[in-house]
Design a protein around this nucleic acid. Structure first.
Length: 487
DNA sequence: TTAGGGTTAG
């Protein structure tokens, strides 16, 4: 176990002055390195120098690895295998590099390698990184294995490790397991409380989230802006306007940083709780708005049926593409680009406002801007045509979809066929729907009311009978929550 | 060499 690190240290202690000077020179070169090209040159220089002491090689390659981890993670990964005795620090740096990229299982592979080789030993950082990876993917089974290692390694009492475990379980929707970790924690800071509150809010256990927020305050732990975002979003989910307003005042009173995320959560909360004016007021007061902030406002207007306001806000978002924000002394400029959620807001606003021409226009611009339409976008378009009673257009649109329409889309069409008494089209649509969802009673109710709307009583009674038979358990007909018959 | 845990929009 002591082999690698011990040898490394031993050799370093035995370097003569000249060798130490060379090592420092290389370290300083890497520190000043302007880009990957220069780094490659230093790397090549080291590899082609046969007389370089092993410890200098290890030390310098680790330095290069640190530089590369955020710029070219695959290069850093290759470097790791070139280091004679990589320290746990080097492993951790590569794992962290992977976490800053799009989701990758590489940190799990690296962790498995560490476990297999038994050297270098994982530390609390390693465990935090691998658990973060398991929660991002998510990888439940792998995370559970890591939990076993946590216990075996004796690092299970570490606050960072425990918070990582708690977060991992809640991200995998295993809130109870997360709560178990939380309950076992000897000390809990604001991060641990926020993680648990956020975990409850995420799965919709809003009362538990709010209860924990009260408990946290009773315990004397001051909430911060991250806690507030979770609690406010819990209010948004339940429509708890009173508590939401109280939290808004609380933020001001306690001097909690009202940042981009908090304001966005407030905009969303006020909009969901029916206070669209207040949502707009908070939104207007925001000095910096990112895509999520703009989207929250647009979606807010859309769900309130305020199509004109939603579209105007979208136009402003496109005009205000460039935002400026300052980090220390550096001023950064970033483009605010509409994303898939923004477009869902815009398209549903068009649908609610009966704006077919505009909806088609935004659909085209969405495709041009490279946003891949999802099922929700297709759903908005079908809704747009159906609400405007353009059933044929809706049907043609559905037929042109490159992905198989989901039951919700067929149902939207069936409702519209019923409304417009379009029996033939309705039967075709119902056929598709019942193939996908033969056990959903709501679909039979819709179909029977389509027949009723055209006075096709015989067909209606057949559908009713099919449904009734299912209700008696013969075909395991499932009832939608809203239509479940009273016992 | 000196890194880590929690948040937001459909």
């Amino acid at each position: 176990m002591e082999m690698g690190y011990g040898k490394d240290l031993y050799e370093r202690l035995n370097l003569d002055e000249e060798e130490l000077a060379e090592e420092e020179r290389l370290a300083s070169l890497i520190k000043k390195c302007p880009n990957m090209r220069v780094l490659n040159q230093i790397h090549a220089h080291i590899l082609t120098h046969p007389n370089i002491p092993l410890s200098t090689l290890s030390f310098t390659l680790s330095k290069i690895l640190c530089f590369a981890a955020y710029r070219n993670i695959h290069y850093a990964r290759t470097l790791l295998s070139q280091i004679p005795y990589p320290t746990i620090f080097a492993y951790n740096t590569v794992m962290r590099g992977f976490l800053s990229q799009s989701p990758s299982p590489e940190p799990i592979f690296l962790f498995k390698k560490l476990v297999r080789k038994k050297f270098p030993m994982s530390n609390t950082f390693t465990l935090a990184f691998v658990l973060k990876c398991c929660s991002i993917l998510p990888a439940f089974e792998e995370g559970k294995q890591v939990h076993k290692h946590v216990i075996a390694s004796g690092l299970g009492e570490n606050l960072f490790v425990q918070t990582s475990l708690l977060n991992f379980y809640t991200k995998c929707d295993e809130v109870e397991l997360g709560r178990k970790v939380f309950d076992e924690m000897r000390e809990r800071n604001v991060v641990a409380w926020s993680a648990m509150i956020g975990g409850y809010a995420k799965v919709g256990l809003v009362n538990e989230a709010l209860e924990l927020f009260r408990e946290m305050q009773k315990g004397g732990v001051e909430p911060d802006e991250v806690t507030m975002v979770s609690v406010i979003s819990a209010c948004a989910m339940t429509g708890a306007l009173g508590l939401g307003k109280w939290l808004h005042t609380f933020i001001g009173k306690k001097g909690i940083k009202n940042d981009l995320e908090v304001s966005t959560a407030l905009v969303n909360m006020y909009a969901k709780c029916g206070c669209i004016e207040k949502a707009h007021e908070v939104f207007e007061a925001m000095p910096v708005k990112d895509a999520k902030a703009w989207s929250s406002m647009i979606v807010g207007f859309a769900i309130h049926g305020l199509a004109k306001e939603a579209i105007e806000t979208f136009a402003k978002m496109e005009e205000a593409k460039v935002i400026k924000f300052t980090v220390l002394v550096y001023e950064w400029q970033a483009k605010v680009e509409p994303n898939h959620v923004t477009l869902i807001g815009v398209l549903s606003a068009c649908a609610h406002g009966g704006l077919v021409v505009e909806g088609r226009k935004y659909w085209s611009t969405m495709l041009e801007s490279g946003i891949e339409p999802s099922m929700e976008h297709y759903g908005c378009m079908v809704d747009l045509f159906c609400r405007a009673n353009q059933i044929e257009e809706a049907y043609e649109f559905v037929k042109s979809m490159p992905i198989a329409p989901n039951p919700a889309i067929w149902r939207t069409m069936l409702v519209s066929c019923k409304k417009n008494k379009m029996l033939d089209k309705g039967e075709i649509v119902a056929d598709h729907l019942l193939q996908l969802e033969p056990l959903n009673a709501e679909n039979y109710i819709l179909l029977s009311s389509l027949y009723a709307s055209g006075s096709h009583w015989v067909k209606m009674s057949i559908v009713r009978r099919q449904m009734k038979e299912g209700n008696q358990g013969r075909s395991r007909l499932q009832f939608h929550r809203n239509q479940r018959p009273r016992a």
